[in-house]
């Protein structure tokens, strides 16, 4: 990991206009991604993790979605301001994505070779023959046995874990600067999860690719990431280096999340901790701390205003009135 910031997201706001009102799926998210860094974004379902990352390459389905504000600065250009044509040259090439469900993320009607070659030919100066060789190499790196045979098969001939390997091979085939992995292991068996994470870690470490890993599993981020952002109701409530965040979580939500991880070293028969209540409905959310109804340390101030991010040093920042001085 270097100090060079490759992606800077600043005040990103992505809203969905629905019949019930405006859903602020992402509301003022900011983070930096350094070259070679692995950044984890954790949060519950609906906290805005996936929308944040689809916004980075401007792939929010519109309508109803709309990026209402903010900047996504990738190697000096704001991706939200450039024409779609230039953006396409970045998608799949400089920034590529893998998705949660490998069973549905590959086109069932096309051979793996077709799907991989079209990406490589599109972004690299290679003919089809060379692109196919490259694809075979990538499949081999991703741990697919007999790739020269398997590449001409269709997705349904692969198991879920194998398909996710294909997705990884495809996503990394153009040597991207950033790999966005959206819950890459959530749909897989636990035994396969570790293998897939190993492949992602191994391959990106070799090429110095930065990774944004979206997950709801704290176990996954703990083993993989240099830095962690905790999202809640469309905002990043806490961000910090992995070790520090796990040892000394500041935000009550982060503390709750870490406390609710099942642990082998605890006595069996003990009740598992859970954060009371439900995540808030993000439609027309007022300017308060969205966590206060579930927070044991909530104060009067929490109901009135959202706290600004407080820098605690060493890259650790938190948005909570316990740490922020009210002005």
């Amino acid at each position: 990991m270097t100090e060079e910031v490759i992606l800077r997201v600043k005040g990103l706001q992505t809203y969905f206009h629905t019949d019930e009102g405006i859903v602020k799926a992402v509301d003022g998210v900011s983070f930096d991604l350094r070259r070679g860094e692995t950044l984890g974004i954790v949060g519950e379902s609906g906290s805005g993790k996936s929308v944040t990352n689809l916004s980075i390459i401007n792939m929010i389905p519109s309508p109803p979605g709309r990026i209402a504000g903010g900047e996504v600065e990738f190697m000096g250009t704001d991706l939200l301001k450039i024409p779609v044509k230039d953006l396409r040259a970045i998608r799949g090439n400089k920034i590529s994505m893998i998705f949660q469900d490998p069973m549905t993320s590959l086109n069932p009607y096309l051979r793996i070779s077709t799907q991989m070659v079209e990406t490589i030919v599109l972004h690299q100066d290679l003919d089809k023959k060379a692109a196919k060789d490259k694809a075979i190499d990538m499949l081999k790196l991703a741990g697919i046995p007999a790739p020269e045979k398997r590449i001409d098969q269709y997705p349904h001939q692969f198991s879920g874990g194998m398909r996710q390997r294909v997705m990884i091979a495809m996503a990394l085939s153009c040597n991207p600067e950033i790999l966005i992995a959206d819950e890459p292991t959530s749909a897989l068996d636990v035994t396969i999860q570790a293998q897939i994470l190993d492949i992602i870690r191994g391959l990106t470490a070799q090429t110095g690719t930065s990774v944004i890993l979206i997950t709801h599993s704290l176990g996954v981020v703990a083993g993989m990431c240099d830095t962690i952002c905790v999202m809640y109701a469309g905002r990043i409530v806490e961000r910090g280096p992995t070790g520090e965040l796990f040892e000394a979580p500041k935000h009550p939500y982060t503390q709750g999340l870490i406390k609710s991880v099942p642990r082998l070293d605890k006595a069996s028969g003990e009740r598992l901790f859970s954060i009371r209540g439900q995540p808030p409905n993000v439609i027309d959310l007022p300017d308060c701390c969205p966590f206060y109804p579930r927070c044991d340390k909530a104060m009067d101030l929490c109901k009135r205003k959202y706290p600004a991010s407080k820098d605690l040093g060493n890259g650790h920042a938190v948005s909570c009135w316990l740490y922020t001085e009210a002005k």
Binding site: G92, S105, N107
Partner: peptide
């Protein structure tokens, strides 16, 4: 479909 999202994310 998910695979159409994948196709778009590839830059096609």
């Amino acid at each position: 479909a998910d695979y159409v999202r994948t196709a778009r994310a590839k830059g096609l």
